[in-house]
């Protein structure tokens, strides 16, 4: 490969390990020339991997699988390099929480939903960041836990994570499942309240992993080593403030223009029930079990693809 390794990511807290690896010179120390491509949409990440304008990407497992399977028109030869984060997704709804706590499962949760919906006066419009996202699977499970059918009980919309803040403010959506730090930002701005999230629906689930294309295979070990060091840095509580400040910088200054206060909060389990946990490990089949089962239930993959899991 003659060009720099192009790594695609979106403006999210869980992109931090890649940003840290670049800004702290960890890629360079491991002999990797990396170019970070901050993408406006998940489709750009998937297309970049499929059509070789990206060599690697920070991505959630369902989209990685669907891209590798060619469900968007062209199969991409991808392999999971390592995990980057677990958890961190938030379920945020607009308005006032009738319970003043995260919602319980079962009839009590259903009653809270019904009361909240009466206040809206319409079928709730709930957003996810991409159709093939862990967010959609988590939202679906949450709705099922409170006895609401995703097809008939809500209107599902797809929206980039950063756009959800203004959409909540404009009442264009009534809530959604979104990654860090956008859900926390919505709560801090008083635009919504937290009803649940990763920790209440699928505790410890794999959220972001780094996938690499064949073109990057030769650099996989060094890339993994650099990201391992970056994740260690991200896990240290003493570095949280610096990470949040760094991610708040504009992209031209090495950051992702994330909201600093909300980003800091998402890094600390004491300030949010839905913290991001950075982890650089091998991706296991167990990580994919619930994901592939839900994808199968939704009709996105068939039985053989479900059984193959991340080996795809």
């Amino acid at each position: 490969m003659t060009h720099a390794l192009r790594i695609g990511l979106l403006r999210l807290t869980d992109s931090a390990p890649v940003i840290i690896a670049r800004n702290h010179g960890l890629f360079a120390q491991h002999g990797i020339a990396a170019e970070i491509v901050v993408s406006p949409s998940w489709s750009n990440i998937a297309d970049g991997l499929a059509w070789r304008t990206l060599d690697a990407a920070v991505i959630f497992p369902p989209l990685a699988m669907m891209t590798a399977l060619g469900r968007r028109g062209h199969a991409a030869s991808l392999r999971p390099l390592c995990t980057l984060s677990r958890g961190g997704n938030t379920l945020v709804l607009r308005g006032t929480n009738p319970l003043a706590t995260p919602w319980p499962t079962g009839p009590a949760g259903h009653q809270a939903f019904a009361q909240w919906q009466r206040g809206l006066g319409r079928r709730p419009r709930l957003a996810v960041v991409h159709m093939y996202s862990t967010h959609l699977l988590i939202l679906r499970r949450f709705l099922r836990m409170i006895g609401v059918d995703m097809d008939s009980g809500i209107e599902l919309v797809v929206m980039p994570p950063a756009d959800m803040i203004s959409a909540l403010a404009d009442r264009a959506i009534d809530g959604g499942c979104v990654g860090p730090s956008w859900g926390t930002e919505a709560c801090l701005r008083g635009l919504g309240f937290l009803v649940g999230g990763s920790s209440t629906i699928v505790p410890g689930h794999l959220e972001k992993l780094l996938v690499v294309s064949d073109a990057a295979a030769g650099q996989a070990d060094r890339l993994k080593a650099a990201l391992g060091e970056a994740v260690s840095y991200c896990r240290a509580p003493a570095n949280r403030h610096a990470i949040a400040q760094g991610l708040a910088l504009p992209p031209e200054e090495g950051g992702l223009a994330l909201p600093a206060r909300a980003t800091f909060a998402t890094l600390d389990e004491k300030t949010t029930p839905e913290p991001v946990t950075f982890v650089a490990e091998e991706v296991t089949e167990a990580d994919f079990d619930w994901i592939t089962q839900d994808m199968f239930d939704l009709g996105w993959i068939d039985e053989s693809e479900r059984e193959a899991g991340p080996k795809r």
Binding site: Y132, D151, V157, M159, D163, G299, W300
Partner: peptide, 25 residues
């Protein structure tokens, strides 16, 4: 491709409810 709202169009075929009368790919 700079449009962030491309994701909404991209995923339309995966919706189990008919968000559009005609599917898009």
């Amino acid at each position: 491709m700079g449009r962030a709202d491309r994701d909404a169009l991209d995923s339309i075929r995966a919706l189990s409810q008919p968000a559009l009368e005609r599917p898009v790919a």
